[in-house]
């Protein structure tokens, strides 16, 4: 009980991971990249994304790097999140991807 509590405080030692399929038509192009990085910047957690579960990982807070991933529609986006607010951060970026970044 006490041990479990201790590991919850501060930095999450093991990164949280999850994946979601890009549903919006244009994939992770300019506008969605901007929305994703704006969302990611709202959290102190380190947020990274990749097209495969084993990387290579890209800083989700860098709009230039996120655009360079060039993830197309139908691609699976993997997220790896580390930090105190990692749970909320992961939920927020996943929701954005599921919603197609508010686009069709």
């Amino acid at each position: 009980m006490h041990d479990a509590h201790a590991s919850r405080s501060g930095e999450t030692p093991v990164p949280l991971t999850a994946s979601a399929v890009l549903v919006n038509k244009v994939g992770l192009h300019a506008r969605p990249s901007v929305k994703l990085t704006q969302c990611a910047k709202g959290f102190s957690a380190r947020i990274e994304l990749a097209l495969a579960a084993d990387g290579p990982w890209t800083d989700a807070k860098s709009p230039v790097k996120v655009m360079r991933v060039k993830a197309p529609q139908g691609a699976t986006l993997h997220f790896r999140v580390t930090g105190p607010d990692s749970k909320a951060a992961l939920a927020a970026v996943l929701a954005l991807v599921h919603d197609g970044f508010g686009e069709a």
Binding site: Q38, K41, P63
Partner: peptide, 19 residues
């Protein structure tokens, strides 16, 4: 676009320029 994205997250001037 990138500078504005960086700025919209509250980043300081140096980070906006770097981005």
């Amino acid at each position: 676009v990138i500078a504005a994205t960086e700025s919209s997250g509250g980043s300081p001037l140096a980070a906006v320029k770097r981005s």
